[in-house]
């Protein structure tokens, strides 16, 4: 979440938490999470079971991997990112290797031009950007054509919430004819996105 959203939550919990005396009856106590989140969690389990976790573990023992990149039978490619540190370069390398025209960048202050995206590309819009995001990562949908000359970028930000939990947020965007300045692949190995055409 953004700083604004995190601050707003802290205020809500502090000033209105006491208003939450009861859980709505339609939300069973054993199912505190929403359906969407449960579905995401189930997806992560499926990834682990299929043995396609490609990320190294940063936690020792047998913890969840820092990241995972998985291609599903329908062709979609799902990236799950639990720890950004040291993970973006290998994730981008894996995406390039799989032919996925998407680059992941850190949404941080030195990547200010993330705000100059030509298209917000949210998952619930009529989109031309073939990426949907979740609370754990994002999914590339190859059946949605990527407009020529559009770099598809996923910005990822991770920080510690006030409750001590690590919070990761993702946002998609498109850049006409160039990737943002902080996209690692533009400096070293050329764009991971589609071939750049002349502006329309």
């Amino acid at each position: 979440m953004s700083k604004f959203e995190d601050t707003l939550w802290a205020d809500l919990a502090e000033h209105h938490g006491a208003d939450l005396a009861h859980l709505p009856e339609s939300l069973p106590r054993k199912e505190k999470r929403t359906g969407r989140v449960i579905a995401v969690a189930a997806g992560v389990v499926a990834v682990a079971g299929a043995g396609v976790i490609v990320g190294p573990s940063f936690f020792g023992g047998s913890p969840p991997a820092a990241y995972a990149v998985e291609r599903a039978p329908d062709g979609t490619v799902t990236v799950t990112l639990r720890e950004m540190l040291g993970a973006l370069d290998p994730v981008n390398a894996k995406l390039r290797e799989m032919g996925v025209p998407v680059v992941v960048v850190p949404a941080r202050p030195d990547c200010r031009d993330m705000g100059q995206r030509v298209h917000p590309g949210p998952p619930d819009m009529i989109i031309t950007i073939p990426v949907s995001v979740s609370s754990d990562g994002f999914t590339y949908h190859p059946e949605i054509p990527t407009p020529l000359g559009l770099f598809v970028v996923v910005g990822a930000a991770q920080y510690l919430g006030k409750d001590g939990r690590t919070v990761t947020t993702f946002a998609t965007g498109g850049f006409r004819d160039r990737a943002p300045s902080c996209a690692p692949s533009t400096r070293d190995e050329g764009p991971a996105g589609p071939q750049v055409s002349t502006p329309r």
């Binding site: 208003d19 939450l20 709505p24 939300l27």
Partner: peptide, 8 residues
């Protein structure tokens, strides 16, 4: 606050 409700 009901912690379960707050988490939900």
């Amino acid at each position: 606050p009901d912690r379960t409700a707050l988490e939900a």
